[in-house]
Design a protein around this nucleic acid. Sequence first.
DNA 1: AACCTAAATAAGAATTGTTCTTGATATGAT
DNA 2: ATCATATCAAGAACAATTCTTATTTAGGTT
Lengths: 130, 130
Amino acid sequence: MTDQRRAVYDVLMGKRDHPTAVEVFTRVRDKVPSISLATVYNCLETLADCGLAKTVTDERGPARYCPNLDEHAHFFCQSCGGVSDIPLRSRRHPEDVWEFPKSLTILRHEVSFRGVCQKCAPKTKAAKRN
Amino acid sequence: MTDQRRAVYDVLMGKRDHPTAVEVFTRVRDKVPSISLATVYNCLETLADCGLAKTVTDERGPARYCPNLDEHAHFFCQSCGGVSDIPLRSRRHPEDVWEFPKSLTILRHEVSFRGVCQKCAPKTKAAKRN
DNA sequence: AACCTAAATAAGAATTGTTCTTGATATGAT
DNA sequence: ATCATATCAAGAACAATTCTTATTTAGGTT
């Protein structure tokens, strides 16, 4: 545990959103001004490997990092780019919906939903009228 | 519909796998030797926009293109990089498993599973013994 | 407390996959 | 045939990430 890792971890836990590596970088520089972006990438990867954070990707956009360790999916707003967590229903599993071939060993899954968030819904309707 | 789009479409339909843009490019050059990679990207994007193909992404790897238009998820083998389709159980929906906030308008979803395929399972076990 | 070794860091170059720019070509309506 | 619009090829540009190298640091051992 180094100063840099501690600072990256604190930044991630301090604000429960889904920052990119660059966003973490700008936030963490307040605490450790000398930190480099490469180190932020390294620290985030280390935290993810340790199970202290999750990596989230929206198509080909920058990777984002999520401090929520519960099993959950993600929602991406097409309009504002916002990301939010979607919880699993209790006692439900992806196997309830998808038919897994027995020959496959499933180790993890990543579920992403795309659409429009509440805040953006009015804008989108207005845009459709044009 | 141009020669290039037709050729890209034929290539995608001709082999039911999940090629990257570069793989499509090398296959399609047999038919249209003068085609450029940028045009392959354009054609694939056009096909995806028309609903004739789906775009599939595995974390930060290259985008892949899928000719299977049925609703399905994807499985990525961590060992060999292979991609396969996972069908939806009949009359099941993601809402059965995840608790969608009513405030969100869900337009589409993307579900990815990761693990080890049948072919790679023995190798992986052997590797674990080391 | 000084020393040692492996691991982590900073800085910037390099890489990867994709998108953009430009001028040339082709297509379809008039 | 002419013109407007869309597509194409070629390669430059771009964004996000990873790699390389030299330096620094953590943390265990004397």
